[in-house]
């Protein structure tokens, strides 16, 4: 049970999930188009005034990520429910937490890839200038996404196997994500506005604290949640 073999297991689970996703592509494309569609719909709901859209852009993008990303988490466990794949996965030696971390990495890659298309699209659609703050923005996006994906992967492991999976996941997940949403939107908005009050630093620290606390809690609790 060395650290090295655990890391190997994590990578193997992540690779398996990503390979399945890459070969089908169905899920990725659907989520991506849904996200792009949501950006348009928000535009129709709030627009066409460019100034309004620009102020709302940070909130719109993060809500779009939350709503579309939630769809990805289901698939992460649904593929395991067919033909008893999960039982087989659990039979492999090694800690249960490596399954969680592997799925976490795969979901993280998935959501970050969606964002890589979504965010440039949003800057074009809502006419947001990001030139000066690209790197700081990338840090905020990563930290916010990491917290979102950590809790999403954890809660989906329960919701996907319950009777009401489509409704249950957002019901459990979204109230837990309020700090992530507030911090990520505020930090993004502060950066886009030139960060005159240097506010983004405090929000970034909050995101880091959230990520660390719930990553630790999820690793500890996952064994109890996944066991049959």
């Amino acid at each position: 049970m060395s650290v090295r073999s655990e890391a190997g297991r994590v990578a193997a689970v992540a690779w398996k999930d990503l390979t399945a996703e890459r070969r089908s592509k169905a899920n990725f494309n659907a989520v991506l188009f849904l996200a792009a569609l949501m950006l348009l719909m928000f535009g129709f709901a709030l627009g066409p005034d460019t100034a309004t859209l620009r102020t709302a852009a940070a909130g719109i993008v993060w809500l779009t990520v939350l709503f579309s990303g939630t769809l990805a988490f289901h698939r992460s466990y649904q593929v395991e429910l067919e033909r008893g794949a999960l039982e087989t996965l659990l039979l492999y030696p090694g800690g249960r937490s490596s399954i969680f971390l592997g799925k976490l990495l795969a979901n993280l890659a998935f959501v970050l890839l969606v964002e890589a298309v979504l965010i440039p699209l949003a800057t074009v659609l809502y006419d947001v200038p990001v030139g000066r703050v690209t790197w700081m923005l990338a840090v905020v996006v990563f930290l916010g996404t990491f917290g979102f994906v950590t809790l999403g992967t954890f809660y989906a492991s329960m919701a996907s196997r319950s009777r009401a999976r489509e409704v249950l996941l957002p019901l459990l997940l979204f109230p837990m994500l309020v700090p992530v949403l507030v911090a990520a939107v505020e930090a993004t908005a502060a950066l886009l506005g030139g960060d005159l009050m240097a506010e983004s630093g405090r929000w970034v620290r909050l995101l880091v604290a959230f990520d660390v606390i719930f990553l630790g809690a999820a690793i500890v609790a996952f064994g109890a949640v996944i066991e049959e």
Binding site: P179, W203, A209, I213, F214, A217, A221, A224
Partner: peptide, 27 residues
């Protein structure tokens, strides 16, 4: 299952209370 799952949700929810409070207070 119900016991294990809801225990995890209960613990996570309680852990989140101070974080939610702090985040909206700054907000």
């Amino acid at each position: 299952r119900r016991g294990r799952w809801s225990a995890a949700v209960g613990i996570f929810g309680a852990l989140n209370v101070p974080i939610v409070y702090m985040s909206v207070r700054w907000w």
